[in-house]
């Protein structure tokens, strides 16, 4: 079954074509990577998937529904971590988890979520006192507390130090093994290559290449996804 089907998606802001005819599908249970440099249209694409932005053109189906029309119903089944979203500094970890659990008809047990993502020792810590990695761990847990079928993670590791980044990779690996469909947006080629079953390489609002990381690397005759990107863009480093 397809969890997500995007056909010829278009969205512009004034005369910027942020997303300029993007097509891809994500199977249920797949970890799908959207990778590309800043301004490539990644966030705009996932915000259309989440029903936060109305596309100018194309069709979108998430779990068989149109996110622009059925955002509320879909929100019960989708979890999201948005680029640069934060919580009030004085809210405590345990309070945030309990609060977000109250939003859903059939949430996961927030205590288990807290335990599973190693947040229990931080339960009484205020959001403002968490490190960058701990904040992202909480945001990931909040994306999962509704027990979603599809999880969208936009720049989960941006701004984290290398240790916290690797730790976050491990968490996404766990999530993947649990069978959840994951859309992982990143401007890091290495993490996309390491974590994703299928990747769409974005540039200037279009998909430059799509397939498994190995396929894209083999097709371009390069050694890594990052090199593949530069080969596709016709530039050398």
């Amino acid at each position: 079954m397809e969890a997500i089907e995007v056909t010829d998606l278009r969205k512009s802001y004034g005369d910027t074509n942020a997303v300029d005819g993007v097509t891809f599908t994500v199977h249920a249970g797949q970890t799908f990577g959207i990778v590309g440099h800043n301004g490539a249209g990644k966030t705009t694409t996932v915000e259309c998937l989440l029903g936060l932005k109305r596309p100018d053109g194309g069709t979108l189906r998430v779990l068989g529904r149109d996110p622009a029309r059925e955002r509320r119903a879909l929100a019960q089944r989708i979890g999201a971590q948005l680029q640069e979203s934060a919580l009030p500094d004085r809210i405590k970890v345990v309070e945030a988890l309990r609060l977000f659990a109250s939003f859903y008809h059939r949430p996961a047990d927030w205590r288990q979520v807290m335990e599973r993502w190693s947040l229990s020792p931080l339960a009484r810590r205020a959001y403002g006192d968490l490190s960058g990695g701990q904040k992202q761990r909480l945001m990931l847990a909040l994306a999962l507390v509704g027990d979603p079928e599809v999880v969208v993670l936009d720049e989960l590791t941006t701004g984290l130090d290398p240790v916290a980044r690797r730790e976050t990779w491990r968490l996404v690996g766990d999530l993947k093994r649990s069978g959840t469909t994951v859309v992982l947006v990143s401007h890091y080629f290495d993490e996309t290559e390491a974590l994703c079953d299928k990747v769409a390489v974005f540039a200037r609002g279009r998909v430059k290449a799509m397939g498994t990381p190995d396929e894209i690397i083999a097709r371009t005759g390069t050694a890594s996804l990052e090199e593949a990107y530069f080969a596709l863009e016709g530039t050398t480093r």
Partner: peptide
């Protein structure tokens, strides 16, 4: 709440 995208984050929930 707007600047820190709390409102936007809530819009992704039910």
């Amino acid at each position: 709440y707007r600047e820190r995208k709390v409102l936007k984050r809530l819009a992704t929930t039910p």
